[in-house]
């Protein structure tokens, strides 16, 4: 479990992270979102004990990171934004070093290296120099390094950058798998990644947390309204006034002759049912009926552009 408590970090006069608090539970994957320069990397560096905070505390499984650095660092796997690779080492040599650095010895080292090269799909490049690998492979070596000591807590700073689409899917699958019995923080700027991989999301902007909640609560809470897209075959039968008269419907926007959107205040299933009943009654020949909630993308834009704060 990771508990970040009122963490503040100043670089000179500039505040990079401002009283940030959140909790990630065991078995949970938290998506950490924010525009560039919002304080994501700084927060992660503080969590992993790379740099001390100006104020506030970080606890990993109940242990303070700066009072028990060695115990805590033993159970954290950290993959920085730029994988920390020694280019003149072989993949095998590098991972052995990373394993020994975390306190593994003897046979455990070879077993650990074998295990992570298998799950990260780098078994075929083990004897090659890290410096001769492509970006995608380097990225995966960086991930293998974070996993080599089988840590309980994983902190991943943009792990899928530079991978091709198939690798991205594989790595996401892997992270999802790992997240079942570990505590994972996943920083990213790809919103789709958060919706497919994470259970909860924290959005940071200008060093402050603006949103922190489970994903399903979030989209629900933020949707102040919904809309439904409709395409019909017989526009001549359409009576827009009848749609507007339905209780709760705010507006009908005509897109094309045969396409329109109905906007309503509160997203409610009964309301959708009523709209479809009315359309059926008018015999307009509905061929498409697509309701929209607020997507995470819209939540994100809202969160970082407007001055809102919503922390559960």
């Amino acid at each position: 479990m990771i508990r970040v408590n009122e963490v503040t970090k100043y670089f000179g006069e500039r505040v990079a992270v401002d009283r940030v608090s959140f909790t990630v539970n065991k078995g949970e994957i938290m998506g950490f979102l924010g525009p560039n320069g919002a304080g994501k990397t700084t927060t992660m560096r503080i969590i992993t004990g790379f740099m001390p905070p100006t104020d506030g505390t970080v606890e990993i499984n109940g242990l303070d990171v700066f009072e028990h650095p060695y115990e805590v660092k033993r159970i954290i796997g950290y993959m920085p934004e730029h994988p920390p690779l020694y280019l003149e080492m072989t993949v095998d040599g590098y991972l052995r070093f990373a394993a020994e650095l975390r306190g593994l010895r003897g046979k455990d080292v070879s077993n650990a290296v074998k295990r992570v090269t298998d799950i990260c799909g780098i078994g075929d490049v083990r004897k090659r120099l890290v410096g001769n690998l492509s970006k995608g492979y380097r990225q995966r070596v960086g991930l293998a390094q974070a996993l080599v000591h089988d840590p309980e807590v994983l902190v991943l700073d943009e792990p899928t950058v530079g991978l091709d689409p198939r690798q991205i899917v594989e790595i996401r699958q892997l992270i999802k798998e790992l997240g079942k019995d570990k505590t994972v923080i996943l920083s990213t700027h790809i919103l789709q990644e958060v919706t497919t991989v994470c259970e909860s999301v924290t959005i940071i902007n200008n060093g402050k947390i603006v949103v922190s909640d489970r994903i399903e609560n979030l989209t629900k809470r933020f949707s102040e309204g919904g809309r439904v897209f409709v395409r019909i075959r017989h526009p001549e039968n359409l009576d827009i006034e009848r749609l507007k008269d339905i209780d709760g419907v705010e507006k009908v926007e005509i897109k094309e002759k045969d396409q329109f959107e109905v906007l309503f205040k509160k997203e409610a299933e009964q309301l959708l049912e009523k709209i479809s009943d009315v359309l059926f009654d008018m015999r307009v020949g509905v061929v498409e009926f697509k309701p929209f909630g607020l997507t995470l993308e819209e939540v994100f834009i809202k969160a970082v552009s407007e001055d809102i704060r919503y922390v559960n």
């Binding site: 560096r45 992993t48 004990g49 790379f50 650095p69 060695y70 115990e71 660092k73 033993r74 954290i76 950290y78 920085p80 730029h82 920390p84 690779l85 020694y86 280019l87 990373a98 650095l101 975390r102 306190g103 390094q145």
Partner: peptide, 14 residues
Amino acid sequence: KSRTMELLMTSPVS
């Protein structure tokens, strides 16, 4: 330069 300091300093090494 190679940012490997991050690896060393986030490992249980003083």
